[in-house]
Amino acid sequence: MLGLGIIGWIIIGGLAGWIGSKIMGTDEQQGIVLNIVVGVVGGLLGGFLLSIFGVDVESAGWFFSFFTCLLGAVILLWIVNAVRSRT
């Protein structure tokens, strides 16, 4: 995923963060910048988790990178919602 460049990270991260927030029902709470941040951090989280299971995420391309970001974004939003509901 490092080969995507900064523009690729922003585009894929933004889309994945936005769709992830729709899936988790948090879209009303966040704007475009937070969607991008959630998507990019979700991509890092998803890439880390998939690499633990032996999945080659670096040479998979745009499509798989998007799903990696989406998976990570949903997991990240789930964790944030769990922490918020405890307080």
Rank of each mutant, 00 (worst) to 15 (best):
V83S: 13
G25L: 09
V74G: 01
S51P: 06
S21G: 10
G5E: 13
G20N: 09
A60T: 01
G72I: 01
E58R: 07
L2N: 10
L4F: 10
I79A: 06
V37D: 01
A73H: 02
G3M: 02
V57R: 15
L50F: 13
I7E: 13
I19G: 00
F63P: 02
S85D: 06
W62T: 07
V74F: 01
G46K: 14
G31H: 06
G54N: 12
G8K: 12
S51V: 07
E28S: 12
W9I: 00
G8A: 08
S59T: 00
K22N: 08
G25K: 03
F48S: 14
G14P: 15
V83E: 12
G61I: 05
G25P: 05
G54I: 04
L77G: 03
L15Q: 09
A16W: 14
G43E: 03
V37C: 04
M1H: 08
G14D: 12
G13D: 10
G5A: 08
K22V: 07
I52A: 08
W9A: 08
G39P: 15
F64N: 09
D27L: 06
F53H: 08
G5K: 08
K22R: 13
I6M: 11
I32F: 05
W78R: 00
W9V: 00
F66Y: 14
V55L: 11
G13C: 08
F53T: 01
I19E: 00
A73S: 15
